[in-house]
Design a protein around this nucleic acid. Structure first.
Length: 581
RNA sequence: GGUCCCGUGGUGAAGUUGGAGUUCACGCCGGCCUGUCAAGCCGGAGGUCGCGGGUUCGAGUCCCGUCGGGACCGCCA
């Protein structure tokens, strides 16, 4: 039906007779004998000059046949890729009429309520922004596939219907028709399958896999999301990191045209010490400064005896507004710190001559004050925020405040990828059992140097577990897995899981490991998140064709919907009465 | 489960101390217009102020509830 696409016409096409198909983006009439019709398809927009009276309106579907010609001098449009040319002597064939759209099919729809965009997603996707985002996503997918294939990974598809496992995220359940009362679960991730594929000798598995988790939605979370899921046999942590880095860098290069530099690494411990979070945003400074020893003999009660005292400096030159916060804002920051778990927040404003203005100024010795300013490099106009608490609380609270105050929107460059390695194997204590809980999942391999600390100091045991972080967003995580039954039992014991319980909860998973499991490890990262950042979006819904709203519904199809009684009966289900008012 | 923000013709906004469904821009319909480009000029149509209740002589405005959308906390091993 067409010889070219709208967005592709350039001066080199001048003189050619072309046929184009698309939607009427805009019509500008100048009397009966002249009209400009902007024709849009996926590739862009081109101006068609119609000098006969054809009635075409917004979003009508038309086929235009005409001759490409240079625009008359002075009428070129530099804001349009096709703006040097136009299609003249146009014959317009109406292929379909259309009602006026509920919102303009152009950049103005960026301001339209997202619910309305989602209700008419097929119109939203006609827009350049969405066309671009879907194509970015396609490039990400295909370059990841190519990178994994290049490295010898084999794509294996795994089941969508699998047994429910109570661990981890809440699952979507699928009732069984043939076995009423029994259910399948949809995969939170292909974790189970990929480790079995290692036992099965596949050696290098990957899949661009859909994962489903019935947890509350966020800007970076949907019920359904896509992961690059991979697993490798006979590898070290370095091998896994290298393979995944290659896929990520290839994906980034395919979108931005620039291959990112080698992805840097930081230990979990260092991330917490310097940035106060396990997904540090390296695009800005404001790092945490260690002050514990400065106040080792302080008279100031709130600092005396604190296990950890740290500060961040809000630089007046970089953050003039925040550094000059008044009393109300500082009180709000203090409330925020308390909500995050700190006992309090001490703020100090640096004034002239190394003096500070602070509610606690009179409690600090001259030496303490001058050392605090020296360590934080604070100068006149800067704001210093200090937290004194246990190590984890101090780090986490200041890390959150650092993000609150300084973090740019996630999509703003430069892109700063970082591997966070050696996560703790165990975290905190289960409030019920008093035992430590797994930091990641109970199959992570402990760091070989730390295995003798299981009993003496379990919380200091590092895992061969790692996260990939981009601009403060967690892209994904992985680990080297335990393949030795004896070590696995040791980890279960530390977690307070008996052999019997382990067998009951994980037996179907552990049984195959008895038949010769190779050393293996893997990784999974979220393609929606990577795509959003590479596309310059701060919300993964913008890179998903048909996403759900925050409440988990689809305004276009109205899913989820009730089903009729017959469907329920066939599945052996009956609904509970609605909860009382 | 919780905190906060938003909801006014098709779209986006404004609406002051509670005083007439009022206003602006875009879109839509009709007319004019031969070089515009988010064209211009003239005219017109279009409303359950999300919904329900309350306070009041009177509610878009205040209060309570509810629905929908969004950000976040919990949750996401």
């Amino acid at each position: 039906m067409r010889t070219h696409t709208c967005g592709d016409l350039r001066s080199e096409h001048i003189g050619q007779t072309v046929s184009l198909c698309g939607w009427v983006a805009k019509r500008r009439e100048h009397g009966e004998k002249l009209a400009f019709v902007d024709l849009r398809d996926f590739s862009g927009v081109v101006q068609c000059v119609v000098d006969n009276d054809v009635d075409v309106r917004s979003e009508w579907v038309v086929r235009v046949t005409g001759v490409v010609r240079a625009r008359p001098a002075g009428t070129e449009n530099s804001t349009l890729a096709t703006g040097q040319v136009e299609v003249g002597e146009c014959r317009v064939e109406v292929l379909n009429i259309a009602e006026p759209p509920p919102f303009p099919i152009d950049a103005r729809a960026d301001e339209v309520d997202e619910g309305i965009r989602l209700r008419h997603r097929y119109l939203d996707i006609r827009r350049e922004r969405m066309q671009r985002n879907l194509r970015v996503r396609a490039r990400v997918n295909s370059s990841i596939r190519a990178a994994m294939e290049r490295q010898g990974f084999v794509e294996v598809e795994t089941p969508f219907l699998m047994p429910s496992t109570p661990e981890g995220a809440r699952e979507f359940l699928v009732p069984s028709r043939k076995e009423p009362g029994s259910f399948f679960a949809l995969p939170q991730s292909p974790q189970l399958w990929k480790q079995l594929l290692m036992v099965a000798g596949v050696d290098r598995y990957y899949q661009i896999a859909r994962c489903l988790r019935d947890e509350d939605l966020r800007a970076d979370r949907q019920y359904e999301f896509m992961q690059l899921d991979a697993e490798m046999s006979f590898v070290t942590q370095d091998d896994v990191l290298a393979a995944i880095s290659e896929a990520v860098m290839a994906a980034a290069e395919s979108v931005t045209g620039v291959r990112p530099p080698e992805i840097e690494r930081i230990t979990w411990r260092e991330a917490m010490e310097r940035f106060g979070v396990d997904k540090p945003d390296l695009r800005f400074g404001m790092e945490l400064v260690e002050l514990t020893d400065v106040f080792s003999a302080t008279e100031f009660k709130a600092f005396a005896g604190a296990a950890s005292i740290k500060a961040i400096r809000v630089d007046a030159a970089t953050y003039p507004e925040q550094a000059a916060y008044g009393r109300n804002k500082l009180d709000a920051l203090t409330d925020r710190a308390k909500k995050l778990g700190a006992k309090g927040l001490v703020w100090l404003k640096v004034v002239a001559d190394g003096q500070v203005e602070s509610p606690v100024a009179k409690f600090l010795s001259d030496l303490e004050r001058s050392e605090l300013l020296a360590r934080t490099h604070a100068t006149e106009g800067d704001l210093v925020l200090v937290v004194a608490d246990d190590w984890a609380t101090t780090c986490e609270v200041l890390g959150q405040l650092r993000n609150d105050i300084g973090r740019p929107p996630v999509h703003e460059g430069p892109y700063r990828y970082v591997w966070v390695v050696y996560f703790p194997l165990f975290v905190g204590a289960d409030p019920n059992t008093g035992r430590p809980r797994p930091g990641h999942h109970p199959f992570c391999h402990p760091h070989p140097d730390d295995i003798d600390k299981f009993e003496s100091d379990p919380l200091s045991v590092r895992a061969l577990a790692y996260d990939l972080v981009l601009n403060g967003w967690e892209l994904g995580s992985g680990s080297i897995r335990i393949h030795e039954p004896e070590l696995q039992r040791k980890v279960f014991n530390a977690l307070g899981i008996s052999d019997e319980e382990a067998d009951r909860r994980f037996g179907f998973f552990l049984q195959p490991f008895k038949y010769g499991a190779p050393p293996h490890g893997g990784f999974a990262f979220g393609i929606d998140r990577l795509t959003a950042i590479l596309a310059g979006e701060e919300n993964i819904r913008e890179v998903i064709a048909f996403p759900k709203t925050q409440s988990g519904a689809d305004p276009m199809t109205n899913a989820p919907t009730p089903v009729d009684a017959g469907q329920l009966a066939e599945l052996g289900l009956r609904l509970l009465p609605p909860p009382a008012q």
